[in-house]
């Protein structure tokens, strides 16, 4: 489905702030995969998503989505097949427009366009989808999104990301800014939608427990590299403690390497 082949990205090249944020990334995502991604702050997880979404062009390497080479596509071209949810609930929606207008904009990227952005059949479709959230939003379709709570906005954004049936759904700590209860709810909705539409998805999370419980495959990133990629039996056998000790071991190995570099 998605292939990253030897992808590299260095920020602020040639300056004192030089940072190799993506270091020879090789990643093959199979159709129907639901991958959870973990790693410390600054590991390059968000940068990986930015590279896939086209926030910047990568320095080298290829990005293939469903047999199409999208390496040189601009961000809005890629958004045709990629839905993305950020941590900040404010980012994904237009606050001064109504729920139905927001949905219409996201929906019409693929749907046939009439003269008007919103028509009756669209509205009933949106109603139907919103009612599945069980948040009561289907009765507030003419409410401005800015008046909703963070959790509600994130739910609307989730719908906007998935309403056009993307080939890939990227979730970047999309529940981290919500209170625990709302976060749980949004996560449950996310799981439901992914299962319902058989979406291929990648989810960055800080919650290692959730990372091992959700999805079928887990990736760990550190310092711009993928240092662990497990699925199937290995993954279900893995405990949180093992994962953490693996992480600190990798870290130490790297520190040792660095020390060798400095002393030699």
């Amino acid at each position: 489905m998605l292939k990253l082949m030897n992808v590299n990205k260095t920020f602020n090249k040639g300056t004192i702030n030089e940072r190799n944020a993506l270091d020879h990334i090789e990643l093959h995502v199979n159709p129907g995969d639901f991958i959870t991604i973990i790693g410390s702050n600054g590991a390059g997880k968000s940068t990986l998503f930015n590279a896939i979404c086209g926030q910047f062009l990568v320095d080298s390497g290829q990005i293939i989505l469903d047999q199409r080479n999208i390496t040189a596509f601009s961000d809005h071209q890629r958004a045709f097949e990629i839905g993305r949810l950020m941590q900040d609930p404010m980012k994904g929606t237009a606050p001064n427009m109504t729920i139905e207008e927001n949905l219409a904009l996201a929906f019409t990227r693929k749907a046939k366009r009439g003269l008007f952005a919103l028509n009756k059949s669209d509205r009933s479709k949106f109603r139907e989808i919103l009612s599945q959230l069980e948040l009561g939003l289907e009765d507030r379709m003419k409410t401005k999104v800015g008046q909703l709570s963070g959790g509600q906005r994130q739910a609307v954004t989730l719908i906007m990301c998935t309403i056009a049936e993307p080939k890939l759904l990227l979730l970047d700590e999309h529940t981290a800014a919500l209170d625990p209860e709302t976060a749980q709810k949004i996560l449950a909705i996310t799981e439901k939608i992914i299962a319902r539409d058989h979406l291929t998805a990648m989810m960055i999370t800080h919650d290692i427990h959730a990372a091992l419980k959700l999805g079928n495959r887990t990736i760990m990133m550190d310092d711009g590299q993928i240092i662990l990629d497990i699925a199937g039996k290995d993954r279900s056998a893995l405990t949180m403690d093992e994962l953490l000790s693996f992480y600190s071991k990798e870290r130490k190995k790297q520190l040792a390497n660095d020390r060798m570099l400095f002393t030699s």
Partner: peptide, 18 residues
Amino acid sequence: LAIRATGDNEEMVRASSI
């Protein structure tokens, strides 16, 4: 609608493939 959204949240417009 896309023009209105551009004034409201440009990032969301691009994320909607516009």
